[in-house]
């Protein structure tokens, strides 16, 4: 059990690192950037001046701007040309390779040029008489969505997968070592034997999920509906554990049982994509706080599915054992 805990901590640490790394190291809004600009630069400089974190130095020629950059006085070079006169704009961006700041510099350049593109579009639209929508301002970590829509679901479902796998293991182990007969002749009922083999597995995944949510919140990733998430995890775990144990009872051999179990669970996961909300999306909405009644409906479905699935597996196991 010590090993199990160590592994959990390890996984938690790893995922926390990912989250913290992504959120802090690559937050584009954190830090000032200096651009050396040359060419047709009026509008670019206007945009730069709108943003506190950015500064720009104008240069007469591209070579001069590059020199400036080479000396380390600027973070990047922007060279703007209008080859066809008033038509399309061509921008050359020169950024440093292999530098911890490169990411910040390039994402700032991207942001800057997107705004430039917005103004260009507005200008075109005005001259064409097309009514465009004003682009709202605001910048955010691009990994907010990733954290909630990919990372959190991953962390919620991984323990589920492992739980079912452990349930399957504890059943096949009895067969491999030939100790199931001892259990069968014991005064325990078959259902009790089944419960004994699976109870820990059913409990451990929701507990683990709760632990991870706690760790995530320590890292600044706060989840909106922990109760909903844990209910969902409990439901899916009951399905996975019931399925894992049934497969193990049926195949009685680890390699086959694990193979069928893995394929089956993945199939289950993929099939939830046929629901109005895929399982991962349900998790994401609960986590980020955009859950609707439909989302809670899905959670209820998983809980019912878990209860029914586990009860069926238990019944079938009783018949298999006797």
């Amino acid at each position: 059990m010590v090993l199990a805990l160590a592994i959990q901590l390890f996984i938690a640490a790893f995922s926390s690192f990912l989250v913290v790394g992504l959120v802090s190291l690559y937050d584009p809004g954190s830090g000032s950037v200096e651009f050396a600009v040359a060419g047709d630069t009026d509008e670019i400089v206007d945009i730069v001046e709108d943003e506190d974190a950015w500064t720009a130095t104008r240069h007469a020629t591209r070579a001069e701007a590059v020199d400036f950059f080479e000396r380390g006085d600027a973070d990047a070079v922007l060279f703007v040309e209008r080859p066809g006169g008033g038509g399309d704009v061509e921008v050359t961006v020169i950024a440093p390779r292999s530098d911890l700041r490169t990411t910040l510099v390039v994402s700032s350049a991207r942001d800057l040029l997107e705004r430039y593109e917005d103004t260009e579009r507005e200008r075109r639209a005005a001259s064409l008489g097309v009514e465009t929508v004003e682009v709202p301002e605001g910048e955010a970590s691009p990994y907010h969505g990733f954290t909630y829509a990919v990372l959190v679901p991953l962390l919620m479902f991984l323990p589920v997968f492992i739980s079912g796998s452990i349930a399957a293991d504890s059943v096949t182990e009895e067969f491999e070592r030939g100790t199931l007969d001892l259990l069968r002749v014991s005064p325990l009922s078959d259902a009790a034997v089944f419960d004994g083999k699976t109870a820990t597995a059913v409990v451990i995944a929701p507990a683990q999920a709760a632990l991870w949510l706690a760790l995530l919140s320590l890292n600044g990733v706060v989840v909106a509906s922990p109760v909903g998430l844990i209910a969902l995890v409990a439901g899916v775990t009951a399905v996975a554990v019931g399925f894992g144990a049934s497969v193990a009872l049926s195949f009685q051999e680890r390699k086959q049982a694990q193979f069928v179990y893995s394929v089956g669970v993945m199939a289950f996961f993929v099939m939830t994509f046929a629901l109005p909300e895929p399982s991962a999306n349900t998790v994401a909405k609960l986590a980020v706080g955009s859950a609707t009644w439909a989302t809670y409906g899905h959670v209820a479905v998983y809980v019912v599915l878990g209860a029914v699935g586990y009860a069926v597996a238990r019944k079938v196991a009783g018949r298999k054992l006797s």
Binding site: V91, E117, E120
Partner: peptide, 11 residues
């Protein structure tokens, strides 16, 4: 309307 050419250099 804006096309971009991004280059990385070793300073």
């Amino acid at each position: 309307p804006v096309s971009v050419d991004l280059r990385y250099v070793d300073r």
